[in-house]
Each structure stands twice: as structure tokens, then as C-alpha cells.
Amino acid sequence: MEIGPVEYLILGFRGTQIHDEFAPAIERLVENNLIHIIDLVFVKKDAEGSVTTFEFDELDEVKGFAGLQGEAGGVISEEDISYTAAGLDPDSCAVIVLWEDLWAAEFAQALRTAGGSVLEGARVPRELVDAALAALPSED
């Protein structure tokens, strides 16, 4: 089975209430065939440090994710969840999402066909982009 590039994001939030306001944006990415959800897991750490995890269809507070199309299950491992939980402050939560970048599948296939591979890549944090752009000379 051919699959495009796969990436994961760990999205963090203060407090243990997971707000689903960003769910429609993810749903639009799926509907527009830009991504395919492979798995999605929520992780909560309470004030005492106890950790709970659940899938998006297991809790009413994330009902905004209920219509999300994708596999959602089994690929994100306990090790991935433990890693995420270890990085969470008490009284916070996170969403781990694993998706296929459908928008890049053709490029990835062409790269493999040409005998190439990605040697390195990273997502540049917004703060660094903002700082770099602010440091550019103005075009006045």
C-alpha cells in the first residue's frame, strides 16, 4: 500500500478541559483531502499528576471530533502516550494526532522513484518565524 508522508503533532493545552473549537479545522483538512487521520489520542494530567487517555469518540467533552473521518485507533503506542504525558505539566492536557499528508503523497512518490529520500526536516516554531520576519529590513 502506497502512503504519503506521515507526521505527528502533540498539541498542548492548559487545564484538563479539552476544547474542541479546532476540530472543524482538522475536519476541513480531511474533507479537502489534504490529510488522512491515522490515529488521534487525548491525554490528560490532573493536578496530582495522574494521567488518563482516551480516543475522540469516548468522551462527551470532545464531541466536536465525533464526525472526524479516519482510523483513530491502535497506531499511537503506550510509549508515545507515556512520552507525551511525561512532558505535560500537572493540570494540563494534550492531543496526539498522527496523519498522512495526502497533499505531499505525489511528491513523496516522485522522490522515492528518483532514488531520493528526506535527510532531515522539522516544523519551525511560530515564534522563530515571527522573530525572523520581524528582523528583516522593511521595504519602505
Rank of each mutant, 00 (worst) to 15 (best):
W103I: 15
A47T: 09
A110R: 14
V43K: 00
D46V: 03
L136F: 02
Q17D: 12
P5W: 11
L88T: 05
D140R: 15
G121H: 15
T53P: 00
L40M: 15
I76V: 15
P137G: 02
F65L: 14
P24T: 07
G4R: 00
P137V: 01
A135R: 10
A85F: 03
V75S: 14
E127T: 12
A85T: 07
R112D: 11
I26L: 09
V6W: 09
A110H: 11
A66Q: 09
L111N: 12
G67N: 12
L9K: 09
I96T: 07
H36F: 01
E139M: 06
D91A: 10
Y83D: 09
I76N: 10
D130A: 15
A104Q: 15
A132D: 04
R112C: 01
D80H: 14
E106P: 08
L29S: 08
E7I: 07
I37Q: 00
E79H: 09
Y83P: 01
C93I: 03
Y83W: 08
G116S: 08
F42R: 09
F107C: 06
L68F: 01
R112L: 05
L11E: 04
F22S: 06
D130H: 14
E139Q: 11
I35K: 07
G12P: 00
A85G: 02
I38M: 10
D101I: 08
D20S: 14
D89L: 05
R123H: 13
A85I: 09
G12R: 09
F42V: 12
I26T: 13
V43W: 00
L11D: 03
I96S: 06
E61M: 13
V30Y: 07
F54L: 11
P125S: 07
C93H: 14
A25R: 10
I10V: 15
A94E: 06
W99R: 13
F54T: 10
L88K: 02
A104T: 13
V124E: 05
E2G: 06
R112A: 09
V6M: 13
W99Q: 12
G115Y: 03
L59M: 08
Q109Y: 00
A104F: 15
